[in-house]
Design a protein around this nucleic acid. Sequence first.
DNA 1: CCAAGTAGCACTATTTTGGTGCTATTTGAG
DNA 2: CTCAAATAGCACCAAAATAGTGCTACTTGG
Lengths: 160, 160
Amino acid sequence: MLQLTKRTEYGLIALVHLVDRRDEFVSAREIGDAYHVPRRLLAEVLKELCRADLLLSQRGANGGYSLAREPENLTLAEAVQILEATPSAKDGSTCETSAWSSCDLISTCPIKTPIERLRAGIWGLLNQTTLRDLATPAPVNPLGELIESAQASSLSARLS
Amino acid sequence: MLQLTKRTEYGLIALVHLVDRRDEFVSAREIGDAYHVPRRLLAEVLKELCRADLLLSQRGANGGYSLAREPENLTLAEAVQILEATPSAKDGSTCETSAWSSCDLISTCPIKTPIERLRAGIWGLLNQTTLRDLATPAPVNPLGELIESAQASSLSARLS
DNA sequence: CCAAGTAGCACTATTTTGGTGCTATTTGAG
DNA sequence: CTCAAATAGCACCAAAATAGTGCTACTTGG
């Protein structure tokens, strides 16, 4: 099931924040304070991202988190897949068979139900968009174009 | 909050089903039976779509539902917005100020938080895709291209 | 040694979701 | 005229998901 939850929101905020601080370890406290996000919950999300090897962690004083990869080759698909994962579905085996994993979605890809096509489309968007795209305000990325079109069509929709 | 729920799934299934039955009234029973969807729940969803003027309804024997518009000019954005609407947020005033309405999303469109950009991107995709696109198996539509890219990238992801 | 961190897990209150019950109304057909 | 098959409109419930917190253990720089 596609869900963009607070966990995802906090996780993406943190990831974007870390883009500007490469080769540095940033604490959960700092990020939480910067965006007025519940510190403890954010910490929990960061731990998840760390377990999934999207982040590196440094324990102890002056510790914190840092991107484990260049923002250019970290797709939102990866991040969202981790952030939206149900805590119950963390056993690795059922993780891959969930409705949201790319594999079963694609393996049955003469797609049947409409919602599966829609999910696949959104998945494609997430796969095309990197953390760099998300962090860059310029509209020269997949997200940018789709945001443009959202603007246009919503404007016409307001007139109906 | 973006959520693709069962309601949305059932609603989209029904809408697609109705594409092939223009100028005809199809009962909730028929659709429910055809896709093994709980009849009562589907009926509830169809009523919602009807209240939102996406469907026309005919009461009484031989009654049912029919598309109120050509599939070409019914965007998924509209459908999803209605189907995902919380029953509590059905008061029309707060409906427009929810995080998911296009208007407030766009009005503040020097977008701030990452998740808002992401939501706008998904919204753009939904705005570009019509019910016709969803009903058409051919990949000559926005969804199709993104599904292609989902296939490609998931394949490469499997190798990592 | 200690303060500031992360690691890990369990737990709770609230909200959301999926689904059902019930009654009223409409309408075509026998 | 009556009945069966529909939609219309609520209200309701159980189960699941979500957001958030508590607590303890471990690590590490100063």
